[in-house]
Design a protein around this nucleic acid. Structure first.
Lengths: 357, 357
DNA sequence: AGAAAAACCGTAAACGTTTTCGAGCGCCAG
DNA sequence: CTGGCGCTCGAAAACGTTTACGGTTTTTCT
């Protein structure tokens, strides 16, 4: 069955691929309006058109405006592939993330996309599915089509990151490595703030539920944790690693209560949700019997009940600065390699109170 | 401060943009390996290299393998911009979504990206921020750089959708329109299943909490609802519209209990969460006093407690078929305009039981 | 064996830009 | 009047591919 609104779709009645590609409705019908058409209409050469559009100071104001008029009359938009072929720049940036289903990364993606569009860049997205070798392959595949890529929280070895950094301009997000620009979030600081908060409430024996040992995120969070614990001189029960999932939280909860702690610090929100569920099932009240904290401030952290005390990651800000870094890096002499860290923020809600005496 | 691992990053000690772009480490150093280099090394012409790579049946197997060897030796990868310039195809597809923070759309995106990559396409992503005019602008901006775009749940008027369909090959996702291919999900069927389920449990007076009236999703869900309600001859209390957010659910809950219904079916999961929270605050037990259902099966639907009865949307499947449709449309005579609808699935969990007598 | 057909491959033109080079022109200093 | 300079612009060469066309070799048929 075929339903076609001939009036709107195609006045010839047939619907060919060619017709669908670059239709122009204003003026005469032409498949694609090129710089040559603009030149003809403005009575100048193609060179002048190009100059008028990309470096206005090189043409007389009068001819420039004539060209601009012609261009907008025809609805001309430069072919970026052709432009890229000669300039060597594509006007695209890439982003590769470990998991598009993870709201953490889509938050970053959203900001990256917005900032890029604002700077007239388009963004390629790729999902590595948490697979380090896929990560490397993806940025290599992208390398030819983009001016640079932001690589989010890669699971690659340091040396492999350097290797892919050789293939294109790279900025890291949530991973620090000497010599490559990065947009970071102060998760160590956030974790420190959690411990400060719990200690201030009176907790003296605290469990930490580790995420994946090798992940940079877990190492950072652990770093802040250790520093705070040492500073305050409280007991730390170091558990795990666990899968950073709901099920991991279920599993971890039992270990934490067996260790006789009054507060449970989870690697991230979703594990914390698992902990909450397991504790409720066992009749252990939160925050009455034990306090619980998460990390990341995903939407549901505010929505569960009691609402989860957690730390908010500045994903949007980090995404923005990542593309800022990339853009700066692209059109400067890259004499320096900045690594910018954005502040995290402790959000205390309903799952933390002073421990029962 | 500048930290550079000279061994890995650049043996000249300086870190220039040019050096970072397209480094080749194997064999002699060259900025970019082109088809000409491959030709030289394989002792053939550039035309033969091109043929060997794109239409193998046109060259003798022996020379083909020689070319392939040379290509892989040099690590050659064709410049897609140059290829696109002449073929008119870019090897890219675009996707524009209303909100990258919405897990529904990132689910689609993930599948689209995976399927596209599998077919050797790269994907551009754009976020319209729920703004219809941005939607139109974005696909127009993309049009020149992609072979087609999948437009997700657009808020545009029908006529405007047709207009953008003129700018590039378009397939719709979660929106049906005569004459343009679409990947749909049977949300009407899902809603029908919800009512069947509730009626089977014994409910006779059911509230529906509308989402935005103009959205195609709400209309579809409502369609399934109406059909089921008519079929079973039960009472429907039609409330709203409400904002499809947590707060909308808070607001709607009170209206629903005031209307003396035994079951509340929400437009989507997040509204349902709001309803649950409000009911709990008011001391109304779920599912004891009233049953509640959501829609979409977001992660937290399974995680809250009691776990939410909802219907799962086949987002991944729809994403896949969307790019399948696009690819088919691209290299066929587009003689037909298929609209494929994927099945939804009712997932009954803890928020629905028979009504109290 | 010879001719026709098929298979294979090279030359060159195209794709739509940007950019180098130089031409034309008006102006000023010598 | 001449030479040089600055401004504006056009002609043409690139960028890295694909492909139409034609030429050479190989195969096939009689």
């Amino acid at each position: 069955m075929r339903v076609v609104d001939t009036d709107l779709l195609d006045r010839s009645g047939r619907l060919t691929r060619h017709d669908c590609f670059n239709r122009q409705f204003e003026g005469e019908v032409q498949v694609a309006v090129t710089i040559r058409d603009v030149a003809r209409r403005a009575h100048v050469s193609v060179a002048t058109v190009s100059r008028a559009l990309t470096s206005p100071e090189l043409v007389r104001p009068e001819t420039r405006s004539r060209v601009l008029a012609a261009a907008s009359d025809l609805g001309y938009q430069p072919n970026r592939a052709a432009r890229g072929l000669i300039t060597g720049k594509t006007g695209n940036i890439g982003i590769v993330v470990p998991d598009l289903d993870n709201p953490f990364f889509t938050g970053v993606l959203k900001a990256v996309q917005a900032r890029a569009m604002q700077a007239d860049y388009a963004v390629f997205v790729a999902d590595s599915d948490e697979d380090p070798v896929a990560e490397a392959k993806l940025v290599h595949a992208m390398a030819k089509q983009v001016d640079g890529v932001v690589l989010c929280a890669p699971g690659l070895e340091d040396s492999q990151v350097y290797e892919v950094a050789g293939a294109t301009s790279l900025v890291l997000l949530n991973r620090r490595l000497p010599g490559v620009p990065a947009a970071l979030m102060d998760s160590a600081g956030g974790m420190h703030a959690i411990i400060d908060h719990l200690v201030a409430l009176g907790h003296r024996r605290i469990a930490y539920l580790n995420g994946p040992r090798t992940s940079w995120s877990n190492q950072e969070r652990r770093r802040g944790l250790m520093s705070a614990v040492a500073q305050h001189g409280v007991d730390l029960v170091d558990l795990g690693p666990f899968a950073p999932r709901y099920e991991g939280g279920l599993q971890a909860a039992d270990l934490a209560v067996a260790a006789d702690t009054t507060a449970i610090v989870a690697y991230n929100d979703i594990m914390a949700l698992g902990v909450l569920a397991r504790l409720r099932d066992r009749g252990i009240s939160v925050p009455g019997d034990v306090s619980v904290t998460g990390f990341d401030d995903l939407t549901y952290a505010a929505l569960c009940s009691p609402a989860l005390t957690t730390v908010a990651m500045p994903v949007a800000q980090a995404g923005r600065t990542a593309v800022n870094l990339l853009l700066d890096w692209l059109d400067s002499d890259n004499t320096e390699v900045p690594q910018i860290v954005a502040e995290t923020q402790l959000i205390v809600r309903g799952t933390t109170t002073p421990p029962r005496k």
